[in-house]
Structure formats: structure tokens, C-alpha cells
Design a binder for these strands. Structure first.
Lengths: 237, 237
DNA sequence: TAAGGTATGTGGTCCAACCACATCAAGTAC
DNA sequence: GTACTTGATGTGGTTGGACCACATACCTTA
């Protein structure tokens, strides 16, 4: 076992046993190195990995924001990993979009009508109505869909949704630039958002799921993404 | 921007531009450090992250297996990340199981009947019929479900399924030890596997999805996992 | 009392050296 | 000529030490 993996194991054990929890601070790098009888380099390599995984955040200086503290950002890890593998051309963008449709459809189908996330989605929709700046609109759009994903109350699904979005963010940006008439598209997106939220308020999760799927697939198809046969219909004998 | 992130960016650019691709080898650490005018330490930190993400594999010595080569193992990254966040108690196991049901149900519902993965699943099922060793049986079971997930032909879904399985592997192992009558459970699992495969061969993906969901949820419930209301039924007005 | 400088502790970076390992090539014994 | 030994080479793995930038807390001084 390589040295940094030993450190990694030690920290993971501390997390599992609860001796280290959210907001907790790791010992200083030099201290930890001495405790585990390894070099500071190895400790740092382990911390780098945890940082990339969204488990800790390293801050210099003194005070409350300094040191290495435990956070919880699963989206960061999944997002970076997906983005890197997209770069290697091993994860087709079409598969990512298809997976996003799958997860988000499921989330809205199971959304709890009284979820605070839905209230947030409604508020975001109001802002989008007034918003005229393209970049601001897209940022609000991201948060809107994220709120939808959170409405089902499944943290894993929310994290995966967020990471998928992050992984193809730059790709989606390029697609948007190809749109012939942004104002018309934005108007359609607003309309579809209203429809989704209306279906949810009407306790019709199934209908909302269909609308979400059409909403996402329609956008990518209009912007020119190659098809991946994402027909949600299931074959029946 | 921290130094190792600069290295990370450089490598990611090489991947995106295609100058580095699957099976390709990175320059030696010392060489790369000199090229980018950074210390070897920073290069190593970047490589560590890529290794944790399942993008590269570092091998010592000489020859074809040596050096840092580009691989493609998205499951590794997602699995480690999920496992770590489970350790921080931020990702409930119930959510992971629920997500697994969601993904695997979708995969079998959209499985292509002529998929090679289905043939592999059938072969694995044959082996499980004869297998009497608990550990071997569980190993085959993992591969069986992985094959099901691959049958839909979506790499992202397959990778996520594999990582979910990996993240809760140790947890599932403990649950198995709690089972009152393993032989009876194993017999039931075999029977359910046959039913799933039969539904698929009958081109009834919807039925197969229902069976898969019941199969997974039934196992965890029997072993004592707390419920997470994973009723797949969608509310209708 | 208020302002400024200093001590302390943190992560960030770099360097130089050494180790373990795996291959390959030259040399050597048969 | 063939087979074995031995060293050279190049890879990542690890270590210790040094210095920097930064942010806070404390202490001195006006």
C-alpha cells in the first residue's frame, strides 16, 4: 500500500467512526505527518485527493477559515470526474444528457408538493420571467433544474444531477451560441418551465416528468446535439 | 490558481485536444515538471488526483506497464467519492439503494435484447445455479447486475451503477451476515434472476424493471435496511 | 486607549537526494 | 552459439528540509 493511501485510510476511518465530522478540522499537515510517521508530502497527496473528492477544503492563514476542514460537496467530485472522462471521449455527451433526463424525470415524478425546493423553483421562475440577460437567465435555469432535482429528497440523485450539469456546462454553453433566435428559445423555455411547475402543483408527477423530458431533449436537439434514441417509451410485447 | 491545478489544466487540455488519448503515456514526472516550469511535487499532486479520478494509472519500473498511462475507469472515481461521503454520513445508504433501483430499473427497461451484456448475464446466471460458496455467489451476483446495467448501452448509467454498488459493498456484506437462512435467500435470488432474464427475453422490459426493483428492495428489506419509501408508483390526479 | 508592528501557525511550493522496481543490454561462462 | 549473470537506465515512491504567502492574535508603543 502506498503511503498516501495509508493516510487516506486513516482519515476515512476517522470519518466513519465519527471522530471527524462535518465542519471538523484535520490536524495540521505537519502534525498529522508526525502522528502517522510519514512525510508531509504523503499527507498532502492524501489531502489533495480528499479535496478533489469534495470531502475537505484547505485554507491558508489563521482563524476559522484556515486549516483543512471537513465539508460535504459530493457534486464536486462527480462533476470533475465526469468532465475529465468526457475529455477522454470515453463518456459521450449524449449519454450524459440521456442520464440527466432519466434522473430529472424521476425526481419530478416523485417530487413532494410541499417541498421547500419547489417553492424555491417557483421563486426562480419568477426571476426568469423578468430576466433579460442571457447569462443571468442560464444561471437561473441551472438553479431551477437543480431545485427540481432536490424536490424528490434524494441526496444522491441531486448530487448526480448537479454533477452531470457541471460536466457538460461548457458544452451546453457552446450549444447555446448556435441557437438561431435566443429570445424565442428563452420564451419557450419559460413557458415550458411554467407547465412543469403547474403539473407539479396539480399533483401530476407523471405529467411533469414527461414535460421535463421533452423540455431537456428539445433544447439539446434544437441546439444540434446528435440523437441518442432517448425515447422514454418502454417496449411492450 | 494553485500550481497543481495548472498541471491539471494542461493535462485536461491535452486530453480534450486529443493529443493524449486512451492508452497514451504522460511525459515522465521530472520531464513534465521541467516542461511546465513547476516542481515535481506539483506534478505529482496533479497525477494523484487524476489517478483517484480513474483517468490515469501510475506504474513503476520500465516497459509497457510502467509510466503514467491514460485509462478510463469512471467507476473508480464515482465509487470512491460516494464511499467517502457515506463515511461522513452525508449520503444516506437508503438514498444510494433507491438510486440504484432507479438506474437499474431504467437500464433493464431499455435493455437491447441482442446486447452482448445480456448474453453475459445469462452465462453468469448459469454459474450461479451451480455455485454453493457464499462469497463466490455474491461476486457473481455483482457481475450479473452490472451486466444488466450495461445492457441499455449507456456508459454513464453503467458507471454510476457500478460506483453505487462499490460504495455500499462493505455495507451490503454486513447485511448479508444478518440473514437468517442464506440458502433459502440464495434460492430466492436465483429464482428472481431467472424471472428477470425471462422477461427480457420475452421483450417485456417493463415487467423486467418491476422485477428488478422488487428484487433489490426485497433483499435490503430482508436484511434489515431502514425503509426509504421507494414505491415506484407515480401519483396520478 | 488606539495604532502599529511582531510572533505564531497555517497551507503552498520548491529542491535535492535516495529508494524500489522493472526492463534492457552488455558481458561472461558454458 | 546459447544461456545466464550483471550492470546501466529510467520509472514512480518517499523523505527531509527550506522558504514563501497569508491571516490571525498578541504585544509594544505613542
Amino acid at each position: 500500500m502506498r503511503t498516501h493511501q495509508l493516510v487516506l485510510q486513516w482519515i476515512e476511518d476517522q470519518l466513519s467512526s465519527g471522530e471527524l465530522s462535518l465542519g471538523g478540522r484535520l490536524p495540521a499537515e505537519r502534525t498529522l505527518a508526525e502522528q502517522l510517521q510519514v512525510s508531509r508530502t504523503s499527507v498532502r497527496e492524501a489531502i489533495r485527493i480528499l479535496e478533489a473528492m469534495g470531502v475537505v477544503r484547505a485554507g491558508v492563514g489563521s482563524g476559522p477559515d484556515a486549516g483543512t476542514v471537513v465539508i460535504a460537496d459530493p457534486t464536486a467530485a462527480l462533476g470533475s470526474a465526469l468532465r475529465l472522462h468526457v475529455a477522454t471521449s470515453h463518456l459521450p455527451v449524449a449519454d450524459i444528457v440521456q442520464t440527466r433526463v432519466l434522473l430529472e424525470s424521476w425526481a419530478v415524478a416523485r417530487a413532494r408538493t410541499d417541498s421547500p425546493a419547489l417553492a424555491e423553483a417557483a421563486a426562480l421562475l419568477e426571476k426568469m420571467e423578468a430576466c433579460r440577460d442571457t447569462d443571468d437567465f442560464l444561471a437561473l435555469d441551472v438553479r431551477f433544474h437543480l431545485a427540481l432535482a432536490e424536490a424528490a429528497g434524494n441526496v444522491v440523485v441531486s448530487a448526480m444531477m448537479g454533477s452531470l450539469r457541471e460536466a457538460i456546462q461548457s458544452y451546453a454553453g457552446k450549444l447555446t451560441a448556435n441557437l438561431p433566435d435566443w429570445d424565442a428559445t428563452a420564451a419557450r423555455l419559460r413557458s415550458e418551465h411554467r407547465g412543469i411547475l403547474a403539473a407539479l402543483n396539480n399533483h401530476d408527477g407523471g405529467r411533469a416528468a414527461e414535460l421535463v423530458a421533452a423540455h431537456i431533449e428539445g433544447y439539446y436537439k434544437e441546439a444540434g446535439l446528435g440523437p441518442k434514441d432517448s425515447d422514454p417509451a418502454q417496449p411492450q410485447p
